[in-house]
């Protein structure tokens, strides 16, 4: 992951830097792809919306140079597309988890805040050292969570020291989230 800011990446794209485009897409890919699912839309819609959002982004790069927050712009465009897709599917039975349905009912508030929190977590995790990233991803992103013995073995640590390592990585992640402006 690059440390270049969004405006720097957009400027580089406009200068013909393909790596900058890739960095932008990599930075926000999960954020954008997650939004249709949170609206209860099926995978085929999620794929279409993902592609359409990035096509819009590509075509709007000139005007996005002056946008303060690319993330907010991307979310707004994705939410609008979800709304249109959902409207087109109105009447069709949707298989939606309860929590996601709640979010869908108030996309302007609950959904957007949740998306922002999740994106800050992704960015903070990506800024961790490789070892801490491995620990945090195992603790939070694996289902079921591995046992501490299994995690210690994976990291080449003794079971006695895994607790210390876990706490240090959690502390580090918390600090990074604070630096990145995580709001709750």
């Amino acid at each position: 992951m690059t440390d270049r800011s969004d405006p720097e990446l957009i400027a580089a794209c406009l200068d013909g830097d393909g790596k900058a485009w890739e960095a932008l897409v990599q930075r926000y890919k999960r954020l954008i792809y997650s939004i249709p699912f949170k609206w209860g839309l099926p995978r085929e819609d999620a794929m279409e919306i993902f592609q359409a959002v990035w096509l819009d982004c590509f075509q709007e790069l000139h005007s996005l140079r002056d946008v303060d927050r690319l993330q907010a712009w991307l979310v707004r465009i994705a939410v609008r597309k979800c709304y249109r897709f959902a409207e087109n599917r109105r009447g069709a039975p949707a298989s939606v988890e309860l929590t996601e349905t709640d979010l869908r009912e108030d996309p302007s508030a609950g959904l957007v805040q949740r998306l922002e929190q999740e994106q800050v977590i992704r960015e903070a995790v990506n800024k961790l050292s490789p070892r801490c990233k491995q620990v945090i991803e195992a603790l939070f992103f694996e289902e079921p969570m591995p046992s501490y013995a299994a995690l210690a073995a994976r990291l080449g640590l003794s079971v006695n020291s895994i607790g210390f390592t876990r706490d240090r990585c959690l502390e580090r992640l918390g600090t990074l989230l604070g630096d990145l402006g995580y709001a709750y």
Partner: peptide, 13 residues
Amino acid sequence: VLRLGQPSRLKQL
């Protein structure tokens, strides 16, 4: 999506 970032496409910008 990444293909949009090919130099020929970026040149269009």
